[in-house]
């Protein structure tokens, strides 16, 4: 039965690895300027983790196969080198592996979080609420109107609580239910939650950031490929969590201008 267990472990390990090697399920193709570093990091980790996984399972299976049963006449033996060798191997091998992953990972992370957005990045605000995203563009004046929480009313489609009657900054703000950005243009995304914690997860853009109620965050990205992608919420926010999503259209500059004009007319 030990031999059967050994075979089972090897078979499971190989079967598990096949979809990874054949790339059956994979992250959505990257359409961001910063995503390549993340993908490289992922594939490097996949190699190292995959080799560790297969090697450990196969050695485990091998020892189970080889060293089971009473085997009269044979004495129990100790692994050559004892624990010291293994500990040294673990510390050096895993230490180096982990250190390498950590260092390269810092680069991929720093690309996104430790570089300020360019001065000409286009500001877009996203507001998360139970259970929809709403987006805000500045309009021609380049500034967002102030948010008045007491004026916020989904019933009146004033999703941001802006005072269009008295606030000149707010007058030309464009609020939309769908996000659109021009291709190859850096976007400065201002993240605001009106109620509970949510998350802004765009797998295709390699963007994932929680909304923190009471703390407005800012991230920046550049989309490099025209297309229609999906923004989903990944932070449990209530009963409609599964349906909290929005579309992100990456458009050519001309299409984007036309889109924005159309949205402005609908305000």
């Amino acid at each position: 039965m030990a031999k059967l267990l050994a075979v089972t472990i090897v078979v499971i390990a190989i079967l598990s690895a096949i979809p990874i090697i054949r790339n059956t399920w994979h992250p959505l193709p990257d359409v961001s300027a910063h995503g390549q570093a993340i993908d490289d990091q992922l594939s490097e980790t996949m190699w190292e983790a995959g080799i560790s996984f297969l090697a450990s399972q196969i050695i485990l299976a091998w020892f189970i196969w080889r060293y089971s049963g009473n085997r009269p006449g044979e004495k129990t033996k100790t692994f050559p080198g004892g624990a010291t060798g293994l500990v040294a191997a673990a510390v050096i091998l895993v230490g180096v592996e982990v250190f390498a992953l950590g260092i390269f990972g810092v680069k991929a992370w720093a690309n996104i979080y430790f570089t300020p957005p360019g001065a000409d990045a286009m500001p877009v605000q996203v507001q998360a609420g139970q259970f929809a995203f709403y987006f805000r563009y500045t309009g021609p004046d380049g500034t967002f109107g102030a948010i008045h929480p007491e004026m916020l009313s989904e019933a009146n489609q004033n999703f941001y609580g802006i005072d269009t009657d008295h606030d000149s900054d707010a007058k030309d703000d464009i609020v939309t239910a769908e996000m659109a950005v021009p291709v190859n243009r850096e976007i400065r995304l201002l993240m605001h939650s009106k109620d509970v914690s949510h998350s802004f997860y765009v797998p295709a853009l390699r963007i994932h950031q929680d909304f923190v109620p009471g703390l407005d965050l800012q991230i920046h990205f550049t989309a490099t490929k025209v297309g229609r992608y999906e923004i989903v919420c990944s932070q449990l926010c209530g009963l409609g969590h599964y349906n909290m999503k929005a579309y992100l259209s990456v458009l050519s500059q001309d299409d984007f201008d036309a889109w924005l004009k159309k949205q402005a007319a609908l305000q």
Binding site: L5, I9, I12, S16, P27, A37, I38, Q41, L42, T45, M46, E48, A49, G50, S52, F53, S56, Q57, L60, I64, V98, L101, G102, G105, A108, W109, I112, S199, Y201, P203, R206, I207, H208, S234, Q235
Partner: peptide, 28 residues
């Protein structure tokens, strides 16, 4: 023995989740 096999499998996926940059894809 099953425990060891499970712990290896669960452990290697920890490599991914220990890295903030990869969690951008895999978090939640």
């Amino acid at each position: 023995l099953g425990f060891i096999s499970m712990f290896i499998t669960g452990g290697v996926s920890g490599f991914f989740l220990a890295q903030p940059s990869i969690q951008i894809l895999l978090h939640a």
